[in-house]
Amino acid sequence: MGLLDRLDNPYDVGDNIFLGTVEDVLNWGRSKSDWYMTFGLACCAIEFMAVNAAHFDFMRFGCIPRPSPRQTDFIIISGTVTLKMAERIKRLYEQMAEPKYVISMGSCSNSGGPYWENGYHVLKGVDRIIPVDVYIPGCPPRPEAFMDGMVQLQSKINHQAIFRKRKEMRPEDIAAIDQRQIELKKLRAEYEAYRIEHLDLTGVDNVAK
């Protein structure tokens, strides 16, 4: 009896067999038990505490807080990154073991947020010092938004290649990607023109200038 015969036989319930790659199994396991660093920066950390607490129950994602960067899989940059803190964050990120992921939570760590214009001491986006995997918008993001970001990170881990080397891109692939970018740009411009044309300006006159 071959393996395929046993797979086809629905009455053979003794062996639960499924076919897949080792990578799939590893990624399935990795994405369902991510450990994060207990690390909070500002307002978003309070919302992150709410995610951890009774109502939202973050641990059902398999996430366990670890106080040491050496035991963690991902770090959540939850708040404003100041220049003084930026070097600490970079060091913490470098202390983490591979593979490691970064969730940027909130406008401040995405781009500087409300402190983008006048914040002389604020880093305008944490992606200037460390690579970011998932960006969560909001000031602060709702717990639901954060959980959506967590699902995004899990799906990213699920589709990662561990053993396969990334194929070198062929010139025709690059050309196809470039073509797609140009199309997207055109679409965006069209949408912007449409938006400005159909902008609803009622009520704007009442606002004090």
């Binding site: 920066l41 500002a42 708040g79 404003t80 100041t82 003084k84 803190m85 600490r88 402190y115 214009e117 006048n118 914040g119 002389y120 001491h121 604020v122």
Partner: peptide
């Protein structure tokens, strides 16, 4: 302290 200095007073002058 100073790891979360977000320039409150400077922001107030500009807004």
């Amino acid at each position: 302290i100073g790891y979360l200095h977000r320039c409150f007073e400077k922001v107030c002058e500009q807004n």
